[in-house]
Design a protein around this nucleic acid. Structure first.
Lengths: 237, 237
DNA sequence: GCAAAAGTGTTTCTACTACACCCATGG
DNA sequence: CCATGGGTGTAGTAGAAACACTTTTGC
């Protein structure tokens, strides 16, 4: 460690925001439009930002999500940092960085966070006039993404699968406040990439004291209405 | 994201290097001596370094370990990044940074890696005349450490426990090439914080095709000599 | 021959798997 | 009355846990 070898990269935080619409897992992505002479590039990026002076990494992630959605108290978990010099070598990304940051960029080390949010919460985009939308996780592979954001999403997904194993309460960050067993099952199965048995799944849920049945059923369904449940955090342990 | 809010911290990599002496889990720490007027501070730090220009995070960790031990092909796994502005506020650490880096430091964002090495491999300290030693993990709590290195060690330990669950081959990164079942059991039990049953443990090992018995036993033990085993990576899957 | 750790089987319990039919509702 | 998904119980299996005595070696 000596002074001449020292190198100052930028440090940013990127958030992989997951949502669940009752059928599929979704990710929140921001539209990115880049004009260069005649050509117009169009792709998507993860919500993220360079960290501010005196701002902790976790705080940067909280700020990004709040600016983007207006929400607070979102579940957040750091999972991996990405610092390859190659990650800022794509011409589209260089162009975009020069336009938005007004600075030549050498390298950005980014810290990845996973966030879980209830998809039905109305997201008020407070930040600049960029378009933010939910995308099917399956579609993402076919979508052109900024930087190494595809890899970041992939690693984020692996991380949240691991977290869900150890903290079953996290499932309920993705479900509406009142949910049916089959919503929970679809979510569970999507996350664990399995097809679980319905009866066994009911049994399992019955053994979770923190999933409590309500005296209420679904409305406006063209078949027998399913019972609604809620998550009771107090009964978690 | 606009230019005036941009902030350039240093980025470093710190390695939590674990070893196992047959009885206890050890961490590799570097002696740090700081002279300030009359006072002499003395504490320990994790091996680490600021990243170099055009150096990926993983490569920085590989370099740090190679400079420290002379070894290559060490198991490495990134686990968490630490970026609180508070982490570079301790006067001892500020003093040390100014002396070794010859620069005023505002903040260092550090990326934590876990490394596993066989403790019997002779470590040739190639780096400057600092003293590097193995310390009992239990002792570490009582030892004065630089920065937030105690927290980093703690998080690194949790991480490696998780990794060992999913990749049982990693246990053998810590054991000598020839080992006994009871060494493996002690390691396993230490890592998982349990006291496993000897007979059940033997059964478990018998079901691991990648742990193969040798025609050889321990020498110079004041009791019945234990059979030696080796790890056969080819039979892992 | 004794101290110290190595090595070895059986039974019990628990958790996971597989599997098929009737029910309620809307159209 | 029919199409659609909701809801329920039992039997089998495989893996984990509990448990105690004999063996080998050095001193």
């Amino acid at each position: 460690m000596n002074a001449e070898s020292i190198y100052y990269p930028f440090v940013s935080v990127d958030c992989v925001v997951f949502g669940f619409d009752g059928e599929r897992l979704k990710v929140l992505l921001i539209e990115r439009n880049i004009k260069e002479s005649d050509e117009l590039y169009n792709d998507k990026k993860l919500p993220g930002s360079i960290i501010l002076k005196d701002e902790d990494l976790d705080d940067a992630a909280i700020r990004i999500l709040n600016e983007l959605t207006g929400l607070k108290n979102i579940y957040l978990s750091q999972f991996h940092s990405f610092g390859s010099p190659e990650r800022t070598k794509n011409p589209r990304d260089i162009l975009w960085l020069e336009k938005t940051m007004k600075l030549k960029i050498e390298r950005i080390v980014t810290v990845g966070y996973v966030a879980l949010i209830k998809i039905n919460r109305k997201i008020q985009v407070l930040s600049d006039n960029t378009e933010t939308n939910w995308y099917d996780l399956k579609e993402v592979k076919k979508t052109r993404l900024a930087f190494d954001h595809e890899e970041i999403i992939q690693k984020g997904l692996e991380h949240i699968r691991y977290k869900l194993d150890r903290e079953p309460g996290l499932f309920f960050e993705l479900l509406p406040r009142k949910f049916t067993i089959s919503q929970l099952r679809t979510l569970h199965d999507t996350m664990h990439q399995v097809r679980s048995d319905i009866r066994n799944f009911h049994k399992k849920v019955a053994q979770m004291p923190y999933v409590v049945a309500l005296d209420e059923v679904e409305k406006n369904v063209p078949h027998r209405a399913a019972r609604l449940y809620k998550f009771d955090r107090k009964k978690l342990w």
